[in-house]
């Protein structure tokens, strides 16, 4: 029954890696949509939109991802909505990503010099057009390093899905450890896989940041 860590196990880890990438991708895309909505609410002139968005961000930034996962994962079931765990996990990570991206993008929207918005106002552009054509495109550029940086956090954060029993890279590693009792080899390989996924993104993000800093000097 006991086996030695071999090629099959490596392939099993790659399958787990696929799920890690998939959760991160779904959460990132879903979070981009949710995050844009939250960021727009956050900079809205209407208090009724601004405040709920602010509290939502405060709650998600003030509680551990692990707890958010537990609550959304089991909470969905308690509400009587029957979805499979993969959907529940995706929803949990999407909520998390929406709140964080919302806050990152809020900062970037506000970092666009107010003169830009004022000039657009003087040209009698509507609020929507001001946002759509003047502010958001510039904010997007400013936000890229931080957004990619958050993607790295998200990828690493998917490892916590293992704690609710979802089989992604980390959990696959735990399964193989349980069958081989070779944790150092298994977790070493798992660590290299995360690094291979995250490091290029981190590198890209830092390089962009430096370029922008240099350009703005």
């Amino acid at each position: 029954m006991v086996r030695i860590f071999g090629l099959d196990d490596f392939i099993l880890l790659l399958v787990g890696l696929q799920w890690t990438v998939l959760i991160a991708a779904v959460a990132f895309v879903g979070g981009a949509v949710g995050g844009l909505a939250i960021a727009l609410c956050r900079v809205s002139p209407k208090r009724l939109l601004r405040l709920p968005a602010k509290y939502l961000i405060e709650i998600f930034q003030g509680t551990p991802l692990l707890m958010q996962l537990f609550l959304v994962y089991f909470g969905i079931g308690i509400l009587g909505i029957n979805v499979n765990p993969w959907v529940a996990i995706s929803v949990a990570y999407t909520c998390h990503a929406s709140a964080f991206l919302g806050e990152i993008w809020r900062g970037c929207i506000q970092a666009v010099p107010t003169g830009q918005s004022e000039a657009a106002f003087a040209l009698s552009l509507s609020y929507r057009h001001r946002m759509r054509y003047i502010v958001l495109p510039q904010a997007l550029r400013i936000s890229l390093p931080a957004t990619i940086g958050f993607l790295v956090q998200l990828i690493k954060g998917t490892s916590l899905a293992s704690i609710v029993g979802f089989t992604e890279l980390m959990r696959s590693g735990q399964y193989i450890t349980n069958a081989t009792y070779q944790p150092m080899i298994v977790y070493g390989v798992v660590g290299l896989m995360y690094f291979a996924l995250c490091w290029p993104l981190s590198f890209w993000s830092t390089r962009m940041e430096h370029r922008m800093a240099a350009a703005s000097r």
Binding site: G6, D8, L12, V15, T167, R171, S172, Y175, A179
Partner: peptide, 14 residues
Amino acid sequence: LGGEPPWGFTDAKG
């Protein structure tokens, strides 16, 4: 269970 041999665990094919 996904990781508790021999009750419920995961083979090398996942």
